[in-house]
Write a protein that binds this DNA or RNA. Structure first.
Lengths: 406, 406
DNA sequence: GGTGAATTGTTTTGCTAACAAACATATTCC
DNA sequence: GGAATATGTTTGTTAGCAAAACAATTCACC
């Protein structure tokens, strides 16, 4: 797969390295605008605590750089001079890649968390790392003229279901994809010419829900997603995703919930993931495959004793994992996604009651349990966030790194 | 207990509120010096990345404020002009208070983690919150003339064995002291006239080990302490103590390690704390009370089958809790204190092997297990750190808050 | 419909603090 | 004793933030 060196960034802006203070303030404003979709200058002034004139200068710079634009205020006006709304430029974009067992999904995402384009490329069999990269690169090359014309791409973010070293972008082990020690970020960088970072899918999902979804406004959340390939998690503490030493943090699917339980592929037994899984639910609901919403419909309509028992059993084990998490991490909120969200929705009291009786009084009394909100765009948003992160840390540096080579 | 308003800060310095940038840099240097005991100016320049002249100016300001002093370099000289050592002023101090079931310990701690004075006030019975406060205040008042003459006190830090809300300093529940919803920080503030903050003892211990002990240099650690009153923990992620929503985070003593295990006072069953405890070890070792080092001696010398079995059993359960923690948090290091440190020292391979086979490959391969290093001064250091934190965040503001009223 | 109050953008001015460069000082190595 | 090296010190320059004064735009009230 040869590839001509393409000018990925429309105008090759000069590399700017402003004072740390300036950079920090630019980053602050960019992040606020990005995470809220848009904010008025007055709101930005309040939220940053900076001076009116300073905020004006900062926004002026961001507008000049083409990273934002201003528009007339939309809502009905208040007393006083109207404050223009600051919007992120939709041309600032990131590519999101999410390999799964039956498809590779590629998204073109712009600032503000908006999906500009999403392509699901179904595969006949589980893709290898090389195949996933090739598919993604082919799709991206297909968009190349459009990208070059209308977008400035900050990079590629990959959300991989497995253990991913966030520092070097190596997939240490992805059991369901069958990948081991695959340097996917480097492979993708070299094949596409874009900077690429990779991380665990559930961690990125947690970040997405924190910023744009059910965790918005919270500082400490525990996110758990249940899917066909098991249970993944992401932890947010004080507004930041917990990474741990190498970015592996959050693997709560392998917490012990049952002594001498079923043996897990991880080597241990009685893991949350082995005791709580969607396969028996699908079966008892009489479904032969399908997605989460189908499962939910089926569980709501075709109830049976057996099924109720299984739901209760799984909720019990989920409750144990949550008890551990609540005691250990004292979160503001727990966000449940996938079939875990379905389980909770079926019996909204159960998990809360569990925690009240099983977890420590202090942490348990404060936590609330939510269902995830972002649905199918979740992974795209999370992966894009990974690609945006470098840009968000130094918005004025945009253009300094035109092509890859991390 | 009436109390005359005392001038707690020798020279009533004017309140200074420097630019955020300046404040940040002053804080950076102060923290570095505090955590290392002393550093040369050249080292500070390298570590901060600031300009030589800037570092010179910053240190000059800190010396003028009486927060640091410079001394001739100690080690044998290198090529080039010798760089003076910057030491924290020992007159900058904090008071540490640690109530336990049989005593209240009060420490006078100075910058650099040094214990200037430590007084253990034994009590006949478990002290109430009011009694603990009264004892501490009485001891502090006894030192008052010395304090006024030689020290500038940044405040009081309390390390309490129980759930403590770090924001308001209320002890939510301290099972072994029998305290419930006691606003100890406010009580202490009002009774002593000093700013007071309170936190969980193990969390503070984790912070102390991170900064001065076995975790020095690490960014992500899991700290677990086993004592007469159970198992407490503290978690550090990316160099910062995990607080959670209200500062309750770290309670790993109540992680499930055994389904249908012994019922715990927390309401759940099979908690780490119920399955792993020092009482049976003392008994099997033929000891009737005593401290950790006595236990260690006894376990090393008087071995028996029963005892070996019990040690193995407890290590097994401890291994499960660590597996959960390693999977969830991906730490660089695990630090074990108290009798947990003894258990580990007795059979240093066991826990590591456990983790290799039970925890996920990525996280497990990176983690190292250490024994705590700080010993008996641990709580004093941790509690003092709590009292120093405000000062460390804005060293030049010292003097702005002469007496209490958080 | 006009006037005043309120709010916010804009321009000007001044100050703080960081950096760079040139210089000074103290040590080792030869 | 001199060169090389490392580091403290002094001076000048610049970036960037904030305060103040001014301008613009809206609402409320009469």
């Amino acid at each position: 797969m040869t590839q001509p060196p393409l000018p990925h960034l429309s105008p090759p802006l000069p590399a700017i390295d402003p004072d740390p203070s300036r950079r920090n303030n630019l980053a602050l404003i960019t992040a606020l605008v990005h995470h809220h979709g848009s904010l008025s200058r007055a709101q930005l002034t309040k939220r940053t605590g900076l001076n009116r004139s300073t905020v004006g200068a900062l926004i002026g710079q961001l507008v000049t750089l083409g990273l934002m634009y201003e528009a007339a205020p939309t809502g009905k006006a208040q007393v006083g001079r109207p404050s223009p709304e600051v919007h992120p430029s939709p041309s600032i974009a990131a590519l999101a890649v999410n390999p799964e067992i039956d498809a590779v999904t590629i998204g073109l995402m712009s600032l503000g968390g908006k999906v500009q384009k999403k392509i699901r490329y179904a595969t006949e069999r589980i893709p290898t790392a090389r195949e996933a990269v090739n598919i993604a690169v082919a799709v991206i090359e297909g968009m190349q003229s459009e990208l070059a014309a209308s977008y400035r791409i900050t990079g590629i973010g990959m959300a991989v279901p497995g253990l991913v070293n966030r520092d070097d972008g190596v997939v240490r082990y992805a059991p369901h994809l069958g990948w081991r020690d695959e340097p996917v970020a480097r492979m993708m960088s070299e094949a596409s010419g874009y900077v690429c970072h990779a991380a665990n899918d559930a961690s990125l999902a947690a970040e997405a829900e924190l910023i744009f979804g059910a965790g918005a406004g919270q500082r400490n959340i525990v996110y758990l997603n249940g899917g066909a390939s098991g249970i993944g998690g992401g932890l947010v503490s004080d507004g930041t995703l917990l990474r741990g030493s190498s970015g592996y943090a959050g693997e709560m699917g392998h917490t012990l919930v049952r002594t001498s339980g079923t043996v897990c592929h991880c080597g241990a037994s009685g893991c949350l993931e082995t005791e709580v899984s969607q396969a028996p639910l699908f079966e008892l609901a009489g479904l032969d495959g399908g997605d989460t919403s189908q499962l939910e419909d089926a569980l709501r309509t075709r109830r049976s004793d057996k099924l109720d028992k299984e739901v209760a059993r799984q909720l019990g084990y989920l409750g144990i994992a949550l008890r551990n998490a609540v005691n250990t991490l004292n979160p503001d909120a727990i966000v449940l996604d996938g079939f875990l969200g379905v389980l909770h929705a079926l019996s909204p009291q159960t998990l809360g009651d569990h925690l009240q009786s099983q977890a420590l009084g202090g942490p348990a009394s404060e936590v609330t349990i939510h269902r995830a909100e972002l649905g199918s765009d979740l992974m795209m948003i999370g992966a894009a966030e990974l690609a945006f992160s470098q840009f968000l840390a130094n918005p004025a540096g945009m253009g300094a790194v035109p092509t890859a080579r991390r």
